[in-house]
Design a binder for these strands. Sequence first.
DNA 1: CGCGAACCGGACTAGACGGTCCGCTTTCTG
DNA 2: CAGAAAGCGGACCGTCTAGTCCGGTTCGCG
Lengths: 181, 181
Amino acid sequence: MTVLRADAQRNLSLILEAAADAYAELGPDATIDEIARRAGVGHGTVCRRFPTKDALRAAVISLRIEELLTHVRELLERPDAGVALEEFVWAAAESCRRDRALFEGIEQCEGFTEVADAKKELHDTVGKLIRRAHREGAIRRGLDARDIGALVGAAIQASLNAERGDSWHRYVQVVVDGLRP
Amino acid sequence: MTVLRADAQRNLSLILEAAADAYAELGPDATIDEIARRAGVGHGTVCRRFPTKDALRAAVISLRIEELLTHVRELLERPDAGVALEEFVWAAAESCRRDRALFEGIEQCEGFTEVADAKKELHDTVGKLIRRAHREGAIRRGLDARDIGALVGAAIQASLNAERGDSWHRYVQVVVDGLRP
DNA sequence: CGCGAACCGGACTAGACGGTCCGCTTTCTG
DNA sequence: CAGAAAGCGGACCGTCTAGTCCGGTTCGCG
């Protein structure tokens, strides 16, 4: 697989988009058939490109993590780490919210190096931001990048069970405020 | 089914305990076979007592909600609602932590009146506590019993993905602190 | 344009799981 | 203690789904 043929490349994009949509709507248990249907390709095409269901999930997840990584690198340029960290939390929340099932059950995908590496890189980069925020006294001690990621993901997940559509905003605010010293 | 025969009663208890254990360990998708195995009864025995998988989950969940309800009624006697609410949050967290999958995917069980009623009753009772805490200025506005339940459940769930075993404590603390005005 | 390689997709397989059924066993009552 | 009723549990069925395979199609290069 040196380079993909044009139709294969097109289908790959369609599958990734369809998978992201399906996960967002149906959770991580969205079936391969459903994803194939949304992408407008055959069941077999999905399975050939991604040897297992988890490999597909891993591909979608690592894409999203890369996006967050790009964002947090920009935020590192900001003078005020506390503000930057808060902005990152909101961005991460937005990402989780868009993809819902992005981080629920992410453990199953940690065996894939692409996900594990991307996650580690993200944690390291966010870690820098956190250390600077610590020095500024903007957030409490005892929480690392993994903790913050988990809390944000949890707040979003909690809002999925809520009736009111704006719950996620209030929940994330509780977490943001709870991060302070 | 006027009254259960002695062996049936015994098996019922075994099934409920085994189910709680299984949910705690494997999440809400624990199979009926697994639960039956843990209870030391046959697959058929479980299915006869509970017509569907969700009915069993509903039974376990409503038991736990009743326990919390008893607790929160005691807390209503306390003079300081803010402190009492905080204690309730910790109790709820402990309950979620013990049963893990207790509140993940609870929506599927809301069709069962036992769960819906118990949940409503709990929300009403916690609501009283919250209103008093509001009057005391102990917590922020804009959050109701459902929100707090969701946030606590989320914090616990977040800690399940964490490597460190004591994460749940820190996460719940973030939520507790975030509840303040 | 033509040919080989890459790719597509539906049919198929295998395994997991929820729920039913019925012959056998245990409990309760008179 | 004996008969009837309640309960037990494993075999069985239908369904769902992940992953494989191969005959037919499309692409891209020469």
